[in-house]
């Protein structure tokens, strides 16, 4: 079981979190202008990275905030944790 540092609550067991898949997938601003392939890329296709992977987690049984985690998919080491809207270096854009 992973130990994840919620940016608002601190380190907690994975039990308290829910997983949201790959992070930083921006919803297209004008979906109607995309062809099926482009929309399909947004909708269905995700990186299956070996190594550092940016992903969304929600502290579902805690503060219920969504945030981002950089996690190594080989070692499961959590490299960094940052709030939605921040960059992985921890700074607001």
């Amino acid at each position: 079981m992973l130990e994840i540092e919620c940016p608002w609550c601190g380190p907690r067991d994975q039990d308290e979190f829910s997983y949201g898949g790959e992070a930083h997938i921006v919803r297209p601003l004008s979906p109607e202008n995309l062809n099926d392939r482009e929309w399909g890329d947004y909708l269905f296709f995700r990186d299956n990275k070996k190594g550092q992977h940016a992903e969304q987690w929600c502290h579902a049984a805690g503060c219920r905030r969504w945030f981002n985690v950089i996690r190594d998919t080989v070692s499961y080491r959590i490299v960094s944790v940052y709030r939605s809207g921040d960059s992985s270096s921890g700074e607001s854009p």
Binding site: G20, A60, W66, S84
Partner: peptide, 13 residues
């Protein structure tokens, strides 16, 4: 509830 929270927090803050 969780679905709507997610859109609000991550896409439409």
């Amino acid at each position: 509830m969780g679905w709507m929270e997610r859109w609000l927090q991550t896409e439409w803050p």
